[in-house]
């Protein structure tokens, strides 16, 4: 019983952070801030749901293979997500997308724009 509560709590926490990230993606003022908010979904959102799923697979289903797969899904998201985020952010900047409100400090633009 206690175990189910812990599992539900973990998944709920993950979903709350996913909700926060989604709200950020819809409401943030510019492209780069939206990307920052999306990181929320893919870190604590995924971590919470994966931990919950991991506990469920180990203690409720009693299946080692399912547990390992859940852990691998989490690990793979953690390894691949930053590479994608970095590439999208850099690509967006180089394609000429700028925030409407001027950024306070923009060293990248200073050093790499002609």
């Amino acid at each position: 019983m206690l175990l189910r509560i812990v599992i539900d709590l973990l998944i709920a926490v993950g979903l709350i952070f996913a909700l926060a990230g989604t709200k950020g993606i819809l409401k943030m003022p510019d492209t780069f801030c939206r990307m920052q908010a999306s990181t929320c979904v893919s870190t604590l959102g995924v971590l919470g749901v994966c931990l919950g799923g991991l506990l469920y697979a180990i203690f409720v289903m009693g299946s080692a293979s399912a547990a390992v797969k859940v852990a691998l899904i989490g690990a793979l998201i953690f390894f691949t997500n930053p590479v994608g985020s970095h590439a999208i952010a850099k690509g967006a900047y180089q394609a000429g997308i700028r925030p409407e409100k001027k950024m306070e400090i923009d060293d990248y633009g200073r050093d790499f724009d002609e």
Partner: peptide, 11 residues
């Protein structure tokens, strides 16, 4: 750094 929400490495 990129995985920490709030910061993204660009270059």
């Amino acid at each position: 750094i990129t995985l920490t929400p709030g910061t993204i490495t660009m270059e």
